[in-house]
Design a protein around this nucleic acid. Structure first.
Lengths: 237, 237
DNA sequence: GCAGAAGTTTGACCGGGCACAACGATTGCC
DNA sequence: GGCAATCGTTGTGCCCGGTCAAACTTCTGC
């Protein structure tokens, strides 16, 4: 573990409103750890011993139901907090966090949370904003699942991933971490099979370019139009 | 508007950890208002001028999509906060709040939030817990919509409503505010027609007892079994 | 008490997407 | 470099649940 360079994280929303002295004090309680690709940061149901800030890489948060189905809750990008169970009063992590790329995280012990909040109330307010935003996003997802066709949900999911973690290429935008059709199915509430079919269709139409655990959006704008199309509307008016 | 009796709200999660002096100071900034049945507390998209605590009655939070579909985000019961947009940094309410029964709410002006949080950091921590719990609930809802059949989703929704706002009768539990099939459809991501069909089936089996905007769960345990059944499992093993 | 509105029920139809299944492609391991 | 495991593609049949349509029931206001 090394001391984290304050300047790298000072601009993050989590630390908004904190002075550099304060920030240093907060960082002093954290340890950074490296998680290799495909390793678990924590498992669903385990004691919530820490909360985290992702410095580098990508982490997938997923939940498994009692009957064995899995769904992807979200992909966490650099600069985002995750595993905030301690802050919202949970004893156990409600989901599993897996590094999908080699990743580096900062971890604070759970016991530090009450102390930090007492000393720097801004931390609670900032975390509240983040959690509130995620609640909004999740509501959006519920709405999509209630009212949209599978094709539109996949379009939305890809656009969100591209926006959050897209890498610009000469001929499109690439999702810059490994993601399988199965993962997309678990994000959009459908099956691997349907995702595969739809992406194949899009590939033939030149909208995307696929590959194993790899997706490039060649025509983001056309995908956006697909996403906004009302169900049953074929767009040719 | 009258001064609120502190003892009535002192036990609420929102005020956990506050002394009675503190509580009085917080309450001094709020005004209570009565909203008759079917009136709107605020509309989706409107300026977020206040945040609220429900003292009495029931409020439905719903969202309308650009294409006109509506979904019910949640039902708010007495003692719960709602319309917390100001606390999570939103300028506008992301949903519409409608009193489904004659209701009484406490409202704080948005501008009071930063001041209150600075003075009583516990408020932010408490709100964070509430919002975090709602995020968990919403994730659960996403999982249900991804993995369960309509019948099971309706069963879960009714059980949740009964738990949150059930009134015990001699022969079952009644949801103690007016709720239509349409509302249930909008909570579970299905159509009014399907809800009606399923409830009719349950009524014939003696599981529930219906009526206009009224539902009594006569056999909560059997409904629970339905809810937990895996898709395709007919329960007769 | 009556008219209109709002909410509910039921039937017929049918299409999207899931289950099942088999094959093809890529990767990592030894 | 060969092999096994994983990941992805594609085809077929079927059923859940959505759409369309229409009648019925319960409430509300005059």
């Amino acid at each position: 573990m090394a001391t984290v360079n304050s300047s790298l994280v000072a601009h993050l929303p989590l630390f908004a409103g904190l002075g550099s002295e304060d920030l240093a004090e907060v960082l002093r309680e954290a340890r950074s750890t490296r998680y290799p690709k495909n390793s678990a940061v924590f498992e669903q149901g385990a004691d919530a011993t820490s909360f985290f800030l992702l410095l580098h890489g990508h982490v997938r948060a997923s939940k498994t139901t009692p009957t064995g189905e899995q769904i992807v809750v979200r992909y966490v990008g650099p600069g985002e907090i995750f595993g905030v169970a301690p802050a919202i009063g949970l004893q156990h992590y409600p989901a599993t966090a897996t590094a999908v790329d080699d990743s580096v995280v900062l971890a604070w012990p759970s016991a530090a949370w009450p102390r930090l909040v007492a000393r720097f109330p801004q931390l609670a307010a900032n975390t509240l904003q983040t959690v509130g935003n995620r609640l909004q996003e999740t509501h959006t997802r519920v709405i999509e699942m209630s009212t949209q066709q599978v094709e539109q949900r996949i379009a939305h999911a890809l656009l969100r991933l591209a926006k959050q973690s897209g890498r610009k290429l000469e001929h499109g935008v690439e999702i810059d971490f490994p993601i399988s059709r199965q993962d997309i199915a678990q994000m959009t509430g459908t099956t691997l099979h349907t995702v595969s079919r739809i992406l194949s269709g899009w590939e033939q139409a030149g909208l995307v370019e696929g590959g194993r655990q790899r997706i490039v959006l060649r025509e983001p704008h056309k995908i956006f139009l697909l996403a906004e199309q009302a169900a049953g509307d074929n767009g040719s008016s």
